[in-house]
Design a binder for these strands. Structure first.
Lengths: 148, 148
DNA sequence: CCGTATCCATTCCGATACTG
DNA sequence: CAGTATCGGAATGGATACGG
């Protein structure tokens, strides 16, 4: 996205540089929702076609989307998430959960995440360590590389 | 950020509209790292001063940062995360974890998250339901409001 | 249907200078 | 130190038109 990440050793900065853009994030969201074709993205997002083409190209180049030939006789292409792209699921979940909590008036309707196997709404997810522990923002510090 | 969210019922779109911007995300990251003053942000990010002023204003207006009088005799102001802003911790963690996994070459050094109480690096966090379950991307679907 | 190309307006951004 | 003001270049964005 930009020439120089602010801090080249910070993983947050690296990620922001790759997907830290309104349209990229919404395209990825759509991809998780099963959208695969150019015009589907275009209509769903209301994005200009030239911008969409540029973003799709960048995301493919970044290894987040992959171009696939459509099933059936048509020669048209589709854009699907790679494994690297699917690993952005947590990021989209984070965006979704914060929005649900802080960007809607009480009682205002919004879309929700559904467990496809049970059909039930997914409850609020929280980050846990492998042994079930939690980390609060206040407990966490960033250690720069090279520091003791 | 923009006038019209693509889909007004989607929490992802709402969040992206508020913080889905390179500089906003990096400012929030810095705020979690304890940066509080205008010139600290400016030097750390290398951002233009007028852009920084605009972003800080927007983030304060969005209720993510709050202006506080600096301690001590100085009359200078500081920018600190509100509770709403601290709830973006998971989002920053998501950015960080994806970057660590996918945006660095093997062995390339990067900053890490540290548990402030133990001093130990925070292990890989994963999203779990309140009863300890996990949700994979493939299992999840978005149900639009109004759908059965 | 899938893109690319072009035009034009708007915004963004960085650099610099300036004020309290 | 903490901003505001301005300026010019670059990127973004929307609309439309065009070819595979």
């Amino acid at each position: 996205m930009s020439a120089q990440p602010a801090d080249p050793t910070c993983p947050v900065a690296r990620t922001v540089d790759i997907v830290g853009d309104k349209w990229s994030l919404l395209i990825i969201r759509d991809a998780f929702d099963g959208i695969r074709r150019f015009n589907q993205f275009q209509r769903d997002l209301g994005i200009a076609r030239n911008i969409l083409a540029a973003r799709l190209r960048d995301l493919v180049h970044a290894g987040i989307l992959r171009v696939e030939n459509a099933t059936g006789g048509s020669a048209y292409q589709e854009y699907v998430l790679t494994d690297k792209g699917e690993d952005l699921f947590d990021l989209i979940v984070s965006l979704r959960q914060w929005g649900q909590a802080h960007a809607f008036a009480p009682g205002e309707p919004h879309s929700v995440l559904i467990d496809a196997t049970t059909g039930e709404p997914v409850p609020r997810l929280s980050y846990t360590t492998p042994d079930g522990g939690r980390i609060q923002a206040r407990q966490a510090r960033v250690r720069k590389v090279g520091e003791p």
